[in-house]
Design a protein around this nucleic acid. Structure first.
Lengths: 208, 208
DNA sequence: CGCTAATGTAGAACAAGTTACAGACTTGAT
DNA sequence: ATCAAGTCTGTAACTTGTTCTACATTAGCG
């Protein structure tokens, strides 16, 4: 509402110089690399700084906390995934199938780097109010991916709610899998289950 | 695989003496009290120990980490809630309504102590493999509460999956509310949305 | 070019979770 | 009542996220 929230909006980013862009990238890469090795605990700020060839204070200037860093890492990875998914859109006939397919594809991608996934998702759910804007960005990205798969241009409120529920399920199921409390098969079933909600919101087949 | 994992199984609880039971209770109470004040960060192990009148080492003997402590605190609070809910079962006509009503009731209870809720839920989702058994206990408790509300004695696999999805949504929605990224109204809608999954699994009305 | 503010560096210092340890206290069996 | 084993206590040390400080480098600008 304030003038600032209209003008600055999200990228309150006074454009970075080339070297700064490079530093940021080195940091994110180091973060992902360490995370892929040993998960959340292995992403130690001193190590990230050293691996990125940057002073600790600088690291903190770019990412004000470990959580911020890992959430940004997740943002980064999600971008990749989104573009990858766009290249080969899901083939299912109805929206629910396509969404389930997309999510399972994403899931399998994460399976390849379970430690990285662990670090990112744990950071995401542990994030407190101070990280809300960044977490929100991740959430919007995820929403975009799901809506893409649904093929919903102008989602109704009911559809948006369904998408939120799917996101909830996605994150939470991921966590239970990562902490070894659910099998992949179970995750698959749950994803498919929650995707049936999409059918309930489809305006196109008023067959009831 | 070892003899121990077969014999000890879960309740590796060599029954506690009275004084030990009392200590455990003091610790859990102190934990809840501190959490209610300042959330996750305010639950500092040294403070919990002091407030409970116990040495730091003892605290760690009872609860091997802060996460264990907070998950146990959540277990404790859930017990309360379960017995409270049993006293006044939800009144809705169909299962979906009853579950939604129950969850919103629980939600309003948590609203009264948002900081406590924050501490418990953050601990729950942050828990790693080492806390799986305890987290699983919480999960089973939640499942029991939901099944109670459904009135499902012999849930089918499809129903169990729906319940898991509802749990996922419940936790995740709670988190987004606690971190200020969703309103109570939105949580309510999402809970109601996900509860419609129950209708899809009801074996009693094969009206399709 | 030369100045100034912003940015980066190195390293110390601090905070809170966790571990380690030496000595006192309990408990349960004899 | 006594002894051994197991618990507790008090306290210090260690780890890792975070903050702070003093100095060096860089970038933009006149």
């Amino acid at each position: 509402m304030t003038a600032e929230s209209r003008a600055d909006h999200r990228p309150a980013t006074p454009p970075l110089t080339e070297r700064q862009e490079a530093r940021r990238r080195r940091i994110l890469d180091a973060s992902a690399r360490l995370a892929a090795r040993g998960g959340f605990d292995a992403v130690q700020m001193r190590e990230v700084a050293e691996a990125a060839g940057v002073a600790l204070g600088t690291l903190y200037r770019y990412f004000p906390s470990k959580i911020h860093l890992l959430v940004a890492t997740m943002q980064d990875q999600l971008q990749h995934m989104h573009t990858t998914l766009r290249k080969r859109p899901p083939a299912g006939a109805d929206p629910a199938t396509r969404v389930a397919e997309t999510l399972m594809r994403a899931f399998r991608a994460l399976q390849r780097e379970p430690q990285l996934a662990d670090a990112m998702v744990r950071a995401l759910t542990f994030a407190d109010r101070g990280v809300s804007p960044e977490v929100d960005t991740v959430s919007r990205l995820t929403t975009a991916i799901i809506l893409d798969a649904m093929g919903a241009e102008q989602p109704t409120p009911a559809q948006l709610s369904a998408v939120r529920v799917i996101e909830h399920t996605w994150h939470s199921a991921l966590i239970t899998w990562l902490s070894g409390r659910a099998s992949i098969a179970q995750v698959k079933i749950d994803i498919e289950t929650v995707c049936r909600l999409i059918d309930l919101t489809a305006p196109e087949r008023p067959h009831r």
